[in-house]
Every structure is written in structure tokens, then in C-alpha cells.
Design a protein around this nucleic acid. Sequence first.
DNA 1: TTTCAGATTACGGTTTCCCGTAAAGATAAG
DNA 2: CTTATCTTTACGGGAAACCGTAATCTGAAA
Lengths: 221, 221
Amino acid sequence: MFQSALIVEDHQSSNQWIQQILKDLGVMTVKYAYYCDDALLMLKRALEDNTPFDLLLTDLSFDEDGRVQQLRNGAMLIEAAKNLQPDLRVLVFSAEPDPAVVGNLFKQLDINGYVHKGRRDMTDLKTAVEYIHQHKKFVPAEFQQAVRSKNAHDFSTYDIQIISLLAQGTLQKNIPAILQQSGAKATSLSSVEKRLNQIRETLGFTKNEQLVAYCKDHKVI
Amino acid sequence: MFQSALIVEDHQSSNQWIQQILKDLGVMTVKYAYYCDDALLMLKRALEDNTPFDLLLTDLSFDEDGRVQQLRNGAMLIEAAKNLQPDLRVLVFSAEPDPAVVGNLFKQLDINGYVHKGRRDMTDLKTAVEYIHQHKKFVPAEFQQAVRSKNAHDFSTYDIQIISLLAQGTLQKNIPAILQQSGAKATSLSSVEKRLNQIRETLGFTKNEQLVAYCKDHKVI
DNA sequence: TTTCAGATTACGGTTTCCCGTAAAGATAAG
DNA sequence: CTTATCTTTACGGGAAACCGTAATCTGAAA
């Protein structure tokens, strides 16, 4: 079993509970953090002390509570952690229900496992830790084909910027000026219209309201 | 302390953990359910057996997983439970961050306490159970002034229907026909326009995209 | 440099939406 | 029944968005 693991989870309840699970599984050193920044610091220190963590077990979303944080979510933490310690094994434990989002974690951040908070999460978590220890990946069935089912769209920062502006109430005709200030490439109203049209078409949508709703649901904006 | 409590929480981890907490606090009979429908059944049975539960401790959001449920969320469960057993004490344990939503729970469903899943939830949960046992309410500081801060809007089912249609891509000019079918009162296009205008104005919005984003954020739709 | 494909922009016609005003209908009090 | 008030509907002008087409720009290959 793993020698040492770091739990990063802002819910005191979950955090405590995971600590217990890991200890039951035989992990010798179980440490924990409530903030991503704290976690990264602990990873650094452990590395410097030549006692690096073997496993990072983290949530994705963290509540803001006044303490200003560099790393605002689990994805940012994982990226920083992998940068610091490429061989670190990562297990994500989250309520994120969108397969596309979870799929990206595997593809882009190369995480080793994902456990969905739910009706079987205790069982899953135990299995996942054992899987990962054996250098296997743990991907729950619901997320197996996270290959973005039928129609999906890769939102670029350009797309996100436009849709965010819409969601803030900006008139389309005022968007070009704003895009220019932020140094985007295609800033003309025509380009904005064309892009929106394109996105709507690939998603099979007819109106921007629909697009905004979709982006909110999928946490694009 | 309470004699018996029912935990309704679909996350196995949280569920288990709460069970432990309640037992530690001295609750004799701790039962649990993963589905709201199951929970209501248990409440009924207990009532019939003359051993009613003293405390209902429930989450708000429940994942769908194929089993068809009558009660799809904690709010519906609480309503049904209070209907069945008006004196039942209710403590909600959820990650819902919107003070307006939580405020409504206190106002409309008359719950006895709310504990927000977060960095202090273990401490809070223990305190809350003790508070409620002493017939006090437990309202976390963040939600004290859930008096819908500055501008807010009470969305009627009529409003929600219209905005949902927009979010689904329905053209405004097609909405009247749909409203008629569902037997609404003001179905004309003019009325729809007027209502949307009104809502936007009270919220200080300029565009429907903004309104849809707001409703998504606040779980109105 | 020339050529060509792709990206970006300009422009005009059509649709949809926005919003004000006035008419029509409903409801309750006198 | 009449009046008054509120709600709902009808209508029209103007703004914004939508969408196709053509012109312009850009960058790389020949």
C-alpha cells in the first residue's frame, strides 16, 4: 500500500472520513489540507525533505471563504502538483457529474482515477486506491465513454469570452470593442456573429439563451 | 438527546459519516436512506409503529441513477414529511451555497437548521443537532440575512416556464402557443414580452441571455 | 513575386425582439 | 348597471440580431 497520501478536500466531513478510509487501507502517513495552496506547499516541503507523497487525493471544487488563494480549484492544484512531482499519483474525488469534464481530467491532466461522490462512493474509493496502487486507472463505468458522446464543442477562450459577455448582458454590437481591448484576433461584429452561429449549429441550438444555459450546465462559464 | 433520527443522503461517504456523528452524540436509533422515496416510506412505517423519528437529517440534491423516484430532491421530501408528521424536526445538510435558496427553506418549509457542507461542517453539524434538540434554530452566519440581499425576484411557475422555454431555444413568438396548451393565464406574445421586461428590470438586466445565466446560477431552472 | 486557400471583415435584407401606447376584457365596489 | 381599476391583448415603430454573400486581408507555397 501507499506510504503517504495527501487529502485535499474543503469539506471537513469528507476530509475526516477519507482520512479514516485511507488509514483502514493501511496508508501509514495520512495528511490533509482544506486549501489547494496549503496542499501545494505541503507537497513541496515533503519533496524537499525527501519524503514525497505517493498519492494525492483531491476534490475539484473548493468554496471561497475570504482567504485569497492562488489555486482556486482541484484542476489547478493537480497541474501544479504534476509540474512539481511528475510521478505523483492522483485520485480525484468529486461530485462533478459531467463526463466531458471528467474526461478532460484524464486526457489533459493524466489523473489516475476518478471517484464520483454518490451512492457507492465508499466502495469505489477503496477500490480506486487499490487500483491506483497497482498502477491501474480507476474510471467509473458512467465515465468510460467520456469521449464526448455525440455533439460537443471545444470552447476556446475566444468562445468563452463572447458567451460570458452575452451572459453579462452585453449587446452583441458592443462586443467588438471589448474584444479589441483584450487583444483578440477576430473582433468584428461579423466575426462574432459567425462564431456564435457556428457554435449554435454544431450543438444543434437555435438561440443564444440556449447556448448560455448549456454553458452554465457544463460549467463552461 | 434525540431518540431516533433518519439520515437521507445519497453519498455513501457522507451518509456513513453522519451516522457516526449522531451515534457519538448519543442518538439511540440512527437509520438511513439513499433515496427520498425510501425515506418517506420509513417515516410512514415508523409513525404506524408508534415509534416516529424525532429528527430528519437530509441533503437537498440527489443524483438520478435510473431508479425512478417520486421525490426528486430534499425539498420535496421535507414537504411530504412535514405533511405526514408536522412536529418532525428537520436539519438540512447540503452544499447549496445560495442564501436565497436556503432562506426559502426556512420560510416556506420551516426547517429547523441548515449546515453548509464545507470547512467547518463537522463542528457545525454537531452544534446544529444540539441546538435543534433544544428547540433552537441553527442558521449559519453566512445565511443569517437570507433576506434576499438587494434585488431579487420571486419567480412564479409562469416565469419559470417562459425562461425555461427560452433556455431550450424556443422563439419568443412561438411561446404563446405553448403556454396556451399548458393552460396558463396570460398567453399572448405581448404578455410574455411584458413579463420578461418586468423581470429583467427588477433584476437590473438588459438581455435574456443574462437572465438565463442568472436562473442557472440560482437553480431557478 | 505570384497564386491560392483560409480567415476576417463589410454590407444589406430579413427576422426576431424590444417597448411604448392604446384598446379590450375582467373584476369588484358603489 | 355603472364606474373604476387592474389585467390582458393588439398593434406598430425602431433596435438588435440573424444570415447570406461578397470583398478584403493574411500567410504560406510555388
